[in-house]
Design a protein around this nucleic acid. Structure first.
Lengths: 356, 356
DNA sequence: CTGAAAGCGCTTACAG
DNA sequence: CTGAAAGCGCTTACAG
């Protein structure tokens, strides 16, 4: 009935058309049980005919619920964002839409990570928050906990959290990788980890150290890197390590991600080492389409856990939390699967002396 | 004054505290000129003290403006998204926030690209749209034009558009790349383009063909690829081309992106060709942090235009459009800069016969 | 310069 | 099963 671009139909238009009260129309549209089947059918037909869509702002004002969830990303001042983050935006948006929610994306810079949370919370634009890449003692989490705001974390920011989260078992993944190399005979294994402030990096480190210690192997601090700029710093570290600057060079690297592995591979090539021959390399593979472990040359042995698989659980969890259908915090830990490929082999026979 | 997590202060609380009408409070807070300086100061102080933040839903309901902009991304059914897209999300969000706007991210699948637009428009959740990666004859654009909805396009979907857009001069970029190779002496230059449905790919093709034709060189269709799956298909095409399957192999490739170039480089290596020696390679570089032309091995000659630089213009344009401060559609075309690096050189002397 | 009043489009006790 | 009325928190003619 209404013209394209003309004024939108309201609940009042439907009530006028049918000679019903707006109360009944509202109830019919919202599936209240006390409405008669016939009335409901008439209302629904009229709504269709008038191309009625509820005005979300009005609904929000009266219910206090916005049906909007915010994803708050961490970024440096220059808006450098972990590319991993993006892998999940599309999936989150789609899954939230299935539950009739919109996704607002915000960026929290390191300068004041809490500012956007405070603003969104105060303006009542948001029903709940999705956070990721937590730092150890993350200020955003402390703020949301104190404010009593619903949120779900992709990751964990400390042991024994009391909030809902979805996380990879990073400790186990690093342990598996180191153990695989140890089984192949490697004794000097370097770790190229995430930024040291990040919570997941602490887990990786613990898993790596557990494997090394269980095998009675040394793991000097100098051979554990926390690159700030992913590829550049990883390459620089690998070049220094392979050059012998910090002691006997490692025969293998465990990398926390495929971009890090790309940096290490570049440095190894530049140093004239052949991966899968002179040097072994294992990465954690988040299944980023543009940097998959299997597409490396040679293909990378990897612990794998597609980031994208986090989307549905995260969307479901935040919706359930907002809807009051989560009595106790749901906490999900998934495990990576290890796949050996051509980037790992036994070390050269003369290179099997451990550090320390 | 108010407790953390307690009820939020409203304009009524301020008016009660100061003995002013809500009308005056509203006017003072919104910078109306007729409010006395003293009153304004008192109101502002009270707002601060009560930690007042306007309820956006109420404001939206009465003004009909949501202060939310939607970024609608294209995706395939499986939610594969062009990684390029993500490069701009953080920047857009930050720049929109400077203008007090939130960014909603939606995904439009190929199955029904218009559905999310219709929904957002009808629910009055959105003041305007940001679209990108247009296809030729993009249905989303036709819909928004017909609906009279404010939008800005990152790209162009046809020649002589009537809407505001920000776009790279793709035709010129491809022409520059092909011309650089021709100047080096190459005669058989293949083009690895974007998906053929995408508008920018038509521009690239036109620029490449213009350069080839101006030099009197053939450019057989068989040597123009439109990979669907970026790296895999690019590698497959390059392998076939270098293997001589379609005729005399090219001595050079122009790639529409660095991920495409990565696929070509992989195939070249697998075929035993040395890039920058046997084979020349030029890519367009969007300055994606994880795949920068300068970080390739060898570093890639490239036409460069950082995607991220689109964020501020796009955010400004959509805000100005919504605010009625754009009388005629603002249309911005930027040019790429060409930087030669080690991936380009003269072709082998015996390989200078043109196609056809 | 300030205020009383209407209204944006919904939802939801309350009453029948 | 249905309706009249109040109200969510703002903005904005209109009046003074």
């Amino acid at each position: 009935m209404r013209l394209a671009g003309g004024p939108l139909a309201t609940i009042k238009d439907i009530s006028a058309l049918l000679g019903l009260s707006v109360t009944t129309v509202s109830r019919a549209l919202n599936g209240f049980p006390e409405v008669s089947a016939e009335t409901r059918a008439r209302v629904e037909a009229a709504a269709r005919e008038l191309d009625y869509t509820p005005n979300q702002s009005a609904r929000r004002l009266v219910t206090g619920r916005s049906n909007i969830v915010a994803l708050v990303l961490r970024a440096t001042q220059s808006l450098e964002i972990d590319p991993y983050v993006y892998e999940i935006v599309a999936g989150l948006s789609a899954h939230l839409l299935e539950r009739s929610r919109d996704l607002i994306v915000h960026v929290a810079t390191d300068a004041d990570p809490v500012a956007p949370l405070r603003r969104l919370l105060a303006s009542q634009t948001i029903d709940g928050f999705l956070l990721n890449t937590p730092e150890i003692g993350d200020a955003r989490i402390a703020f949301l906990v104190a404010a009593g705001a619903p949120f779900v974390l992709h990751g964990r920011h400390a042991p024994d959290p009391t909030y809902p989260f979805y996380d990879l078992d990073n400790r186990e993944a690093a342990r598996m990788a180191a153990e695989a190399l140890i089984r192949l005979g490697h004794r000097r294994i370097a770790l190229v980890n995430g930024r040291s402030a990040l919570a997941f990096a602490a887990e990786r480190r613990a898993g790596y150290l557990a494997a090394m210690q269980a095998a009675g192997l040394g793991a000097p601090e100098a051979f554990i890197a926390h690159p700030e700029a992913i590829q550049t710093d990883a390459a620089r570290f690998a070049a220094a390590a392979l050059g012998g600057a910090m002691g006997p060079p490692p025969t293998a690297f465990v990398c926390a991600s495929t971009p890090l592995a790309a940096g290490v591979a570049r440095a190894a090539r530049a140093a004239g080492r052949k991966i899968g021959d002179d040097i072994s390399l294992i990465a954690h593979d988040d299944a980023l389409p543009h940097l998959r472990a299997a597409d490396f040359d040679p293909p990378l042995s990897a612990t794998r856990a597609p980031l994208r698989e986090a989307c549905l659980p995260l969307a479901t969890m935040i919706c359930d939390l907002i809807d009051g259908r989560m009595e106790i915090p749901r906490q999900v830990v998934v495990r990576a699967a290890y796949t050996p490929r051509a980037s790992t082999a036994a070390p050269p026979a003369e290179e099997t002396a451990p550090w320390r």
